[in-house]
Amino acid sequence: MIPAATALTETDFERFREYFYRRTGIQFAPSKRYFVDKRIDHCVRAAGFETFAGWFGALRLGDRPALLQELINQLTVNETYFLREDYQFDALLNAVLPRVLAARGGPGRMAGPVKILSLPCSTGEEPYSIALRLLAEWPHIDLVDVEIHGGDIDSEVLSRAAHASYGERSLQRVPKLWMSRYFNAVGAGRYQLDSSIRDAVTLHQINICDTAAMRVLHEFDVVFCRNVLIYFDELSSRRAAENLYSAMRPGAYLFLGHSESMSRISPIFKPIRLPEGIVYQRPTGAK
């Protein structure tokens, strides 16, 4: 039960829903009301407020960014593990890479490798998930070169990504066969990714909002940028979107997190429907 102090009236909920939609582009169905109420209650208490109204007033004022960050954390699942939001990797293999190969002349006639970027890559689960799925399931992997890059602003998570050893929680979705083929047990319930894969992924310490630094990333065919733009204020998310655009080839594809929408941020990408969901394309004609 929600205690009376933070219980939301119907009007509170509508105001909140409107605010959160304006700020993030995320909207909740009425059926999610109970879930949302519980998460809000957590945020109100965690920030030390007595009432929803007091907390909501401070949130709207915007001078305590941590309030919004915690709210987004609570309302979006934000955990990194192998093969997370796997349907987007399905889209990569089934729809996006075939289009990339076709646009670049087909296997054997391509100048340079297919380049895939994971940004931010955190402790490496995302770029390594891409590598595993390509190696295990993509028939063209023996016909073309693929370069995978990961980037993150945080040097601490990058050094863990470079070491690439993970616990069971992070690996729970990895098939047993892949575990035996691509990982080595290193004790204490941890498994390290084989060096052949670790060494094939290039890691960069980089701030997605830093236009000058982002110039080292260019000519990417596919970019994964999931669950980060949602945390940025409007200016930062616009700059990040512009920088991603610059890092991509004309016609290249961008994946965002499942609750994120580029049309909230910038009109420079074109949304494309794939059987597995929406992906964004840098327009081909814009060169």
Binding site: I141, D145, V146, I197, V216
Partner: peptide, 14 residues
């Protein structure tokens, strides 16, 4: 063919 690491470090950008 297959997964490849970026061959050489990025040249200094002008």
């Amino acid at each position: 063919m297959g997964l490849v690491r970026k061959a050489e470090p990025e040249p200094e950008l002008p």
